[in-house]
């Protein structure tokens, strides 16, 4: 939902970043306001996932220039855990398995760290169980997965559901979903997409990173950005995604080149 007077959630200005001295992001600009859903598309290696990790604060990525303002704060000055507590959420493309750590305990500690920042009371084990069982409905997840180690032995679909469950518990202000649609069958995609739509509020914003139109059939974006070579080359509405699906990424490159030539 686009409202030009709504709160500015995220503002990325001329962001450059590298990993192992290899430049990946080469001047990304992006503005996200409350209530908006953005989609970032692009080929493999275009910098989409790097952008998500830089926003979340992955220590392997080094920001060499530019800035990210999150609700008026300098996001790049914050540790990854502080960003999460303030409401930045990254749904991982490949959620990490953590053997030996109970999923339920992990979710409880994470939820309480966010609640602490929001000035809400810490939930004890019993209170948290009530909350998590209610939120399981968002993604239609089997409660048995709470008793297992974090993501260990989960199928691809269960891992993604577990990501959205975390989103439901942490109630983020800004969510990035990095290829949440990858590895999902059609039914799982619908469930996950419905969960994301259910969690979108007028005061929060979502950034979907995807290769394909199929996720955008389920979640309608307000803006579609196309990335290539570490930059956003083109921004448009949901029709841009449809056009991309039809004409492929080369179309963007050629039309962009035409624009430059002119």
């Amino acid at each position: 939902m686009i409202r030009t007077d709504s709160e500015l959630i995220l503002e990325i200005t001329d962001l450059h970043a590298c990993v192992e001295n290899q430049p990946i992001l080469k001047g990304v600009n992006l503005t996200v306001r409350a209530g908006e859903i953005h989609a970032v598309m692009g080929r493999n290696g275009s910098g989409k996932s790097t952008l998500s990790k830089v926003i979340a604060g992955h220590p392997a990525y080094n920001v060499t220039a530019g800035k990210i303002q999150f609700q008026g704060q300098d996001l790049l000055a914050m540790e990854p855990e502080e960003r999460a507590r303030c409401g930045v959420f990254l749904g991982f493309q490949y959620p990490v398995e953590i053997p030996g750590v109970s999923n339920l305990e992990f979710l409880r500690v994470a939820t309480n760290s966010r609640r602490e920042k929001l000035g809400q009371a810490e939930l004890d084990t019993f209170e948290f169980e009530d909350l998590v069982r209610e939120r399981l409905n968002v993604v239609q997840m089997d409660p048995a997965f709470l008793e297992r180690s974090v993501n260990e032995g989960f199928s691809g679909g269960e891992k993604k559901r577990n990501e959205i469950l975390q989103m439901a518990l942490l109630q983020p202000v800004f969510s990035i979903l990095d290829e949440t649609d990858s590895g999902l069958d059609i039914d799982a995609l619908r469930i996950v997409a419905a969960g994301v739509s259910q969690l979108a509020t007028p005061t929060s914003a979502t950034l979907l990173i995807t290769h394909y139109q199929r996720l955008l059939n389920e979640i309608t974006p307000d803006f579609v950005h196309v990335m290539d070579s570490g930059k956003i080359l083109r921004t448009g509405g949901k029709d841009l995604a449809l056009e991309l699906e039809r004409a492929g990424y080369d179309w963007i490159n050629s039309t962009n080149k035409d624009q430059e030539d002119n």
């Binding site: 979340a56 604060g57 992955h58 220590p59 392997a60 540790e79 990854p80 855990e81 960003r83 999460a84 507590r85 959420f89 990254l90 991982f92 959620p95 990490v96 953590i98 992990f106 500690v109 994470a110 760290s113 966010r114 920042k117 974090v150 975390q166 942490l170």
Partner: peptide, 13 residues
Amino acid sequence: EDELFYMRSRGIN
């Protein structure tokens, strides 16, 4: 490192 980052990205120091 990836386990640690995953947890940190959920607000756990």
